[in-house]
């Protein structure tokens, strides 16, 4: 099933509704890449709240999406990873290094709003880690 992609201001929201097959994930990557790259789109929020599992392939594609979109000048936020999913991912060593995350869609929009106001760098999200305190 195709993932619906909504537009919200300068951001796109890809709202995952059901578990995704490998093909679905690849298709999502291609569509998002195609839709970004313009001044109207500053970034993408991928909402994965409904997913109760994220396997290594899905994690890899999510990372790839983030990297591809970065090259297209857009920001990626993965929102709504469930605690159990996070626990399983960490145990399997499936980090999402370099990918911004948010608690849920609302949190993601807040993070976007903060960034939009061009706050100080620490208002940015969590990756890369903050520089050491001096």
């Amino acid at each position: 099933m195709e993932v619906p992609i909504l537009k919200q201001g300068e951001y796109l929201i890809a709202s995952v509704q059901v578990a995704l097959s490998d093909q679905d994930l690849l298709a999502l990557q291609q569509r998002l890449s195609a839709l970004t790259g313009t001044q109207e789109v500053r970034g993408v929020v991928i909402d994965v709240t409904v997913l109760d599992v994220l396997d290594s392939y899905a994690v890899r594609i999510l990372r790839m999406i983030s990297e591809v979109l970065a090259l297209r000048g857009a920001r990626t936020i993965i929102a709504g990873i469930q605690p159990e999913v996070a626990l399983a991912m960490v145990r399997l060593g499936l980090g999402l290094e370099g990918v911004e995350t948010a608690l849920d869609l609302e949190d993601a929009m807040e993070k976007i709003a903060r960034r939009g106001k061009s706050r100080s760098p620490e208002g940015r999200s969590t990756w890369p880690p903050l520089s050491r305190n001096t």
């Binding site: 929102a79 996070a86 991912m89 960490v90 948010a102 993070k111 969590t126």
Partner: peptide, 13 residues
């Protein structure tokens, strides 16, 4: 490190 990683996946730092 794992705990920190897991928290980060939920968007917290």
């Amino acid at each position: 490190v794992q705990t920190v990683e897991a928290a980060r996946l939920l968007g917290a730092q």
